[in-house]
């Protein structure tokens, strides 16, 4: 399905921005008596700020990761964009159109966090139902649904199995299938990997990458940073409802090597004692030693010793700063001194 630009597009010449939010805020004001999940709560002017002046920009064709700890406002952002919640102030545009525009919604596929689908429907019926909600004609649905099962890699018995019988990974996959049933331009995934085993996480990762290959913009939230690091073109980090950093991964993380990890065996006792003094971390087991050294010169010295003593070098790993470390550094900062330079740099 070809992308049809709804209305005049201001950035036609340069890179197209498909999702843009301006000073997006969400404040939950609790009712005096609030009924929440069957329980009655009494609140006295209680308010919760879930999101404060969030500015985001997602470009066409990229994989954009919205990262942050639990309760940071990732889901709130996505829910506002999807029209599940209404923003308290600020505005957001998708493809240059305001939220809730049906022609835009036609171009979006969405997978919520921990999705629970109609478990009495069979896989095939389920996708058919969602296809109908997109207004796809019957002939298209009939052609598209078997393809989708293949795309997301569901087993052959899946179409005729009620969703009740699906495993968590299968559910996540059929969730992705319903999100891309209308061949959307933008795919929004809320915590697509939560609750999955490593293998499942890898499969979702692969699906996201293949979505990008087919020219779709993928916008997803996650708190599993190692996965995000692997696939994201750009990320935004939110904490306590505010944007902490946004930009390309290469810009955000410092490029220099932080430390060196050396594993060797058969070193002399003297050398081991020597190394232990300099090491950040030192583990000795029988013949093997694991040393983490902060300086490059120290690592070179150790390598020379290994050659000298004819010991065995098992591995040498130079370690850069990971997203996780960056994240922890940023998140644990006081709210005032966040790195807004990243945002400015992108602009």
């Amino acid at each position: 399905m070809a992308f049809r630009a709804p209305g005049p597009c201001p950035q036609k010449t340069t890179i197209m921005i498909v999702i843009q939010t301006e000073k997006l805020s969400k404040i939950y004001s609790h009712d005096f008596i609030d009924v929440e999940y069957g329980r009655i709560k009494f609140n006295w002017f209680r308010r919760t700020v879930a999101l404060e002046n969030l500015d985001l920009e997602v470009k066409e064709g990229e994989i954009f990761g919205l990262l942050g700890p639990n309760g940071a406002g990732k889901s709130t952002t996505i829910k506002i964009l999807m029209g599940i919640l209404f923003a308290s102030s600020g505005s957001a545009k998708i493809m240059g159109r305001p939220l809730g525009d049906k022609s835009v919604k036609q171009q979006i596929g969405f997978l919520p966090e921990n999705p629970f689908f109609y478990d009495y429907l069979k896989g095939e019926e389920f996708l058919d139902y969602y296809g109908q909600l997109y207004g796809l004609p019957k002939s298209v649905r009939r052609k598209r649904i078997p393809e989708l099962f293949e795309t997301v890699g569901l087993p052959a018995h899946a179409p005729n199995l009620p969703l009740k019988g699906y495993s968590k990974g299968m559910l996540q996959r059929i969730g992705v299938a319903q999100a891309i049933i209308s061949d959307p331009k933008i795919v929004v995934l809320d915590e697509p990997q939560s609750g999955l085993d490593p293998l499942g996480r890898k499969e979702i990762r692969d699906i996201i990458l293949s979505l990008k290959e087919s020219g779709k913009t993928v916008f997803f939230s996650s708190h599993i940073l190692s996965d995000a690091e692997l696939i994201c073109d750009r990320v935004a980090i939110v904490n306590r409802g505010r944007l902490t950093a946004m930009g390309e991964l290469g810009h955000l993380l410092s490029p220099k090597v932080k430390e060196y990890e050396v594993i060797a065996s058969g070193l002399s006792k003297e050398t081991v004692e020597n190394v232990r003094r300099n090491a950040v971390k030192f583990i000795e087991r029988e013949n093997d030693v694991l040393v983490i050294l902060p300086e490059e010169s120290q690592a070179r010295e150790l390598l020379a010793k290994i050659v000298q003593e004819k010991a065995t070098l098992v591995s040498l790993t130079p370690r850069k700063e990971t997203l996780e470390e960056y994240f922890i550094r940023e998140v644990s900062k006081a709210p005032g001194e966040s790195k807004t330079a990243g945002v400015a740099g992108v602009r």
């Binding site: 919604k105 999705p115 909600l133």
Partner: peptide, 15 residues
């Protein structure tokens, strides 16, 4: 609402 299936419905192009 409880099972959050409404999320997927509302995000679809329907009123």
């Amino acid at each position: 609402m409880e099972r959050k299936t409404i999320y997927t419905i509302v995000s679809k192009p329907i009123d």
